[in-house]
Computed example of a mutant assay.
Amino acid sequence: MKAVIFHQYGSPDVLQYTEVAKPSPTPEQLLIKVFASSINPIDWKIRRGMLRVVTGNKFPFFLGSDFSGEVLEVGKNLTNFNTGDQVYGFVKPNFGGAYSEYLVTTPQFISPKPNNLNYLQAAAVPLAASTALQALRDQANIKNGQKVLINGASGGVGTFAVQIAKAYQTEVTAVCSSKNIPLVQQLGADHVIDYTQEDFTKNGQQYDIIFDAVSNRSFSACKNSLTSQGIYITLLPSSQLIIDNVLAFFSSKQVKFLLAETKPQDLAELTRLIEQGQITPIIDRTYNLSEIIAAHTYSEEGHAVGKIVIEV
């Protein structure tokens, strides 16, 4: 089968679209024919070696987390899925394998695909939308009527975060560039701040939740923009996060860090919201799997609006 692998950390040029052995499922696994995947920033951070403490130096490395496809084989010990089922999900990025024609995984990483999405749209959802859901619902305990600010509202996680926050009936302020203002308004944002014209940490406004979906502002910078019980959430572990937690210790405000987990119940919840029309995936560009170098290069530029999808 065709897959994307790399034998050393580095630039997009280390990625190889090549022939590898087709995997075989164990009695506890399913074999998925992958129709689409998508790019998440963690993919190219792994490729660059930024997470080698977790990923180690064992090569070749198979990249890719998100997938949508069809069940081809069901392990003999499994009963919840059948051959031909249309599914989507995400595997742990540090194991990867979704940039390929076939993937073996376990039921905990998949869920039935939303009926109103095609495979390309479905592949844009799992990791980014799960991240937004778990950040707002689990870390921030989002509630009706709260004021929520999404920094990086036009990105992969941000576009889902805006829609999920609105599904919880909150007042949403989206931070993005001027060219993306119409999009985030269309997604439901009540207020929009153009970060090229205004610094949201210095305008005197306060929020119950600040979700830094691009992790480019610290708690230290945001703390005065939080209400007395406000919560700041970041997706990037860093030395600054340690300092922020020390600062938060002496405050009623909270700092939260999230690394999304695969939860079938969360994928089912996202499916419900999608099928009810409350969430729509936003796709910036679609590349073929053989164009993975160009796809990673574009993702690293940091200007993608919504998700970059890979057609397998």
Results as ranks from 00 to 15, higher is better:
301 E>P: 00
128 A>Q: 02
107 P>C: 08
233 I>A: 05
184 V>S: 12
8 Q>L: 07
109 F>A: 09
212 D>T: 15
113 K>V: 04
53 V>K: 08
295 A>G: 10
311 E>I: 00
291 E>M: 09
228 S>F: 13
293 I>L: 00
63 L>M: 11
107 P>K: 08
244 D>H: 13
263 K>T: 04
270 L>T: 09
120 L>T: 06
3 A>L: 08
204 G>N: 05
97 G>E: 11
142 I>H: 10
114 P>I: 13
284 D>M: 08
133 L>A: 08
184 V>I: 08
295 A>E: 02
116 N>I: 06
118 N>V: 02
77 N>D: 15
211 F>S: 02
284 D>K: 01
157 V>G: 06
85 D>H: 05
302 G>W: 08
305 V>R: 13
193 I>T: 00
147 K>H: 12
46 I>L: 08
5 I>D: 08
53 V>T: 03
37 S>R: 02
149 L>Q: 03
73 E>S: 05
277 G>L: 03
121 Q>N: 12
111 S>L: 11
89 G>K: 03
116 N>C: 04
232 Y>L: 09
72 L>T: 00
139 Q>D: 04
292 I>C: 09
173 T>R: 11
153 A>P: 11
17 Y>I: 01
269 E>K: 13
274 I>N: 12
173 T>M: 11
219 F>V: 06
277 G>F: 12
19 E>K: 10
281 P>D: 00
181 I>M: 08
179 K>P: 01
224 N>G: 00
190 D>E: 06
241 L>S: 07
260 A>Y: 05
60 P>C: 04
10 G>I: 12
132 A>N: 04
42 I>P: 01
10 G>M: 12
278 Q>F: 14
69 G>K: 11
186 Q>R: 05
179 K>H: 14
146 Q>H: 12
265 Q>Y: 14
287 Y>T: 01
228 S>E: 15
305 V>W: 06
33 K>C: 01
147 K>D: 14
165 A>F: 13
145 G>V: 13
291 E>W: 10
119 Y>T: 00
147 K>S: 15
106 T>C: 07
186 Q>H: 10
259 L>H: 07
97 G>D: 09
18 T>Y: 12
275 E>Y: 11
171 E>N: 14
213 A>V: 03
302 G>E: 11
61 F>P: 02
156 G>L: 10
162 V>E: 00
269 E>A: 13
1 M>E: 01
254 Q>I: 07
99 Y>W: 08
75 G>D: 04
50 M>S: 10
23 P>A: 05
20 V>R: 05
160 F>I: 00
238 S>E: 14
102 Y>K: 05
44 W>A: 10
305 V>F: 01
257 F>C: 05
258 L>Y: 11
88 Y>S: 03
106 T>A: 09
199 D>W: 10
131 T>L: 15
142 I>C: 04
134 Q>G: 14
121 Q>F: 04
35 F>A: 02
133 L>W: 15
119 Y>S: 08
57 N>G: 02
172 V>A: 03
212 D>R: 13
226 L>E: 06
220 S>F: 09
48 R>A: 15
274 I>Y: 13
